[in-house]
Amino acid sequence: MTEYTVRQINRAKALSRRMYKLPNGERIYLRFPKYQRIEHQTLILSFFTLSFSGLVQRYSHLKIANYIINQLLGGINNVQFIHHVAASIFIAQSIYHFAKIIRMLLIDQELGYMWPTKKDFLDIWGIFLYNIGKKDAKPLFDRFTVEEKLEYWALIWVNIIMIITGLIQGFPVFFTKFFSREILPISKAIHSWEAVLAVLVVLIWHTYHVLVKEKNNSIFTGYLTENQMKENHPLELIRILEAIAFMKEISKIP
């Protein structure tokens, strides 16, 4: 008889709990637990507010932006106040997210599924070959597809850059004590350009993948259907099913 560690059993237990049976017999799979959904909803709010209140400042020479600033929001000082409040939320949730990653790595001793791997580079090429008809089968994905990983890491990058350059602009006197030489105009330029990049990526890449190519609303409902799992996350589906089988097996052990 094989011996299982507590860790193995706990992991399998957690995985097996991801599958739910609906009353009509359909099986759905938990993709995002509640805390992740709340995190994302907060991000929608802070990201949208930041982009909006930031871009109207970047493009304030346009009539429409000027109208928004002066007529709708009551002046530039209000716009900046909104931007700073949203930025505080954004920073707070970034700290929360990094704390979660550290907890996962150090306490749970797990790597998670978001790290870039060699397979990702092969996958993105594989998808492209499949899409142009040079390959018959699509690469199989685990919990996160390469497209999702790309976007996640892009957001992490944007997040770090925006927070650093934003803080420098918010506290210029403090930061110039340590850094000299154009730090303010550089921060402003990067902050401004990076904002455009981030908004465009979210608008194009994210909108296409969760709204256009398929309606994936698991970030709001928390669940994916079995078909969606088979299509996008077959390796994860296998792991879940294996865990269920495993749990059944060990439940037989007296």
């Binding site: 998808i127 492209f128 499949y130 899409n131 142009i132 008809g133 350009w193 455009v196 990049l197 465009l200 990526v201 194009i204 890449w205 296409y208 256009v212 190519k213």
Partner: peptide
Amino acid sequence: LIGTVLFVSSIYIFFDARK
């Protein structure tokens, strides 16, 4: 960078949508 990102992702999305 912005131009490149837009160009590459547009191509990617175009072939993905076509498939």
